[in-house]
Design a protein around this nucleic acid. Structure first.
Lengths: 107, 107
DNA sequence: GACGCATACTTCGTCACTCGATATATGCTG
DNA sequence: CAGCATATATCGAGTGACGAAGTATGCGTC
């Protein structure tokens, strides 16, 4: 499998703590990244369709709030595996450049 | 600045240890990534042009070997800053998913 | 009450980039 | 001499990101 784009990665990462609907994913991604990642709506809904047909996420449930649909998505096992693998790939790639003090405690 | 693609990242990373010509970058990227990253030629030469016009790399020198040109590229200060920043971004993003033991010593 | 903003989803067009394929050319090895 | 590694150039197709505009509701405010 080839590298995952940043939007895709953050969508999956956002869903690791439980199902969310589209707009909430945008907020969660922004929160997780410390305000760095702002998912564009066009990117989000397109990516959501793609990820659902790839089986990395699935529709959890659909609610009607104020007469408008709100669709919740869950990450699948495949999706969770994919983000985890991608996280490892990124950490590995980062290490190639930042190769001193691998144990620098930042958090 | 928005996220860098994997090919771009590895091209810049390959040049951190000194100037290389196109084909050598492909080899170096494959080596650095432990055989994971195989830069396609179409990707490479296109990216090289783009990076040069963005000022992230520059032409170091041109040699003629066996009657054929061999163009060496160097990373610029801007390029080195960009990869370093990108490495940090990736490490940070990876941490969101793999959030235990931030100081795991792997190397 | 009209206006703007946050919420929430859809769709469209454009642009950037990846990548496989094709072309060109040389030297080495089987 | 065929095939592969080396080395670069270019093109066309496909994918995906993203801004914009459209639709719709509820809330606060002037």
């Amino acid at each position: 499998m080839r590298p995952m784009s940043e939007p895709t990665y953050f969508i999956l990462a956002s869903l690791l703590d439980g199902p969310l609907h589209g707009y909430a994913i945008i907020k969660r991604a922004e929160e997780l990244s410390g305000g760095q990642v702002r998912l564009a709506v066009g990117t989000l809904y397109g990516a959501l369709d793609r990820l659902a047909s790839n089986g990395l996420i699935a529709i959890d449930r659909e609610e009607i709030v104020d007469g408008r649909p709100r669709r919740y998505f869950t990450i699948t096992d495949d999706g969770a595996d994919a983000v985890t693998q991608e996280a490892k790939r990124m950490a590995q790639a980062a290490r190639i450049v930042v190769r001193r003090q691998p144990g620098t405690v930042t958090s």
